[in-house]
Computed example of a mutant assay.
Amino acid sequence: MPLLSIITVTYNAERFLERTIQSLIANQPGDEVEYLIIDGNSKDGTLDLVRKYENHISRWISEPDRGLYDAMNKGQQLATGDYVWFMNAGDEIHDATTVANLLHQIRTNPADIYYSDALFVDETGKPLGLRSRVTPHTLPHHLTWRDMAMGMKVCHQAFIARRSLVPDFWVDNLSADIDWEIRCLKAARTIVWLDFILCKYLTGGLSVQRHRQSLADRFKVLATHFGTATTLWNHVRIVERAVRFRFAK
């Protein structure tokens, strides 16, 4: 049984998948890590890349799905590691020491959740800055589910959870990753902030491409956990925070 399952979800991802796979290979993960690719029946060259690197992939499937979060649910169901870590096409493990550092933490400081900051990068791989600095979302070093009342504090690529406590993703909600993190945090007894960066996060994902629906879905998620009235007030605060952040920059 591996300690860690790294899961990559793909759909027509030939432009970006290779950088994700190569970041895994650079870490020389060994038997303690399994790597899964869950593909949504891609029509481009994605599967050619999968076959090219098949020796580094523990298991892959390609079949129609109901979207990103349906595929992520499939990944969780197929995973056998003690922990799950989603690193989707275009995202990268931060550097060649990251997996070794993470496994050391898991062995010596067992926890239900590990999290860190994320380095934003553009399509060319150019660094744009740490998420906690280039967005209004500061990163607490003692994270709880209540810290998510005004939105996502940790991107899911920098959030690793014990598989035994993870819930299913909310398939038809574009902010399902916020809901998933909140539910993980509610279930967790021990949550550890890591003082090293876990990932490079490729900006411009689904929530950006369908921004209006993503905001509406985020409201549904936050209202589910914090109540409608509190969420309405917090959205006023979110707008004020965004304005202050923009002027400060």
Rank of each mutant, 00 (worst) to 15 (best):
W85D: 13
D65T: 05
V84L: 10
A71V: 01
E92S: 02
H94A: 01
K74F: 04
G67I: 00
F86R: 02
K74S: 07
Q77L: 11
K74G: 03
G81W: 10
D65P: 00
W85C: 09
T97W: 02
E92W: 01
W85I: 09
Q77E: 15
P64T: 10
L78Y: 13
S62V: 10
V84Y: 05
W85H: 12
S62I: 11
E63S: 10
D65N: 13
E92I: 00
E63T: 07
W85S: 09
W85E: 14
G90T: 14
L78H: 11
A89R: 04
Q77V: 03
Q77I: 02
R66Y: 12
A96D: 15
S62R: 12
D65K: 01
A96Y: 04
A71S: 14
A96N: 15
A89G: 14
I93E: 12
L68C: 03
A89I: 06
D91M: 09
Q76N: 15
A71E: 07
M87G: 06
V84N: 11
W85L: 12
G90I: 15
E63H: 06
S62G: 14
I93T: 07
G75Y: 06
R66P: 08
E92L: 02
Q76D: 11
T80D: 10
A79K: 03
M72G: 02
L68Y: 03
E63D: 08
D82K: 10
Q76H: 10
L68V: 02
G81K: 10
S62N: 14
P64D: 12
L78R: 13
T80A: 06
D95G: 07
A96E: 15
L78G: 07
M87W: 04
N73Q: 07
M87C: 14
L78D: 09
N88R: 00
L78M: 15
W85Q: 09
N88D: 15
A96H: 14
D95F: 05
A79M: 01
G67E: 00
D70M: 00
E63L: 11
A96L: 06
T97R: 08
L78A: 13
D95V: 04
M87I: 15
A96M: 12
I93R: 03
A71Q: 09
Q77K: 14
S62F: 13
M72V: 01
D95A: 07
R66F: 14
E92F: 01
G81I: 08
V84P: 11
D95L: 08
T80I: 04
Y83F: 12
Q76R: 11
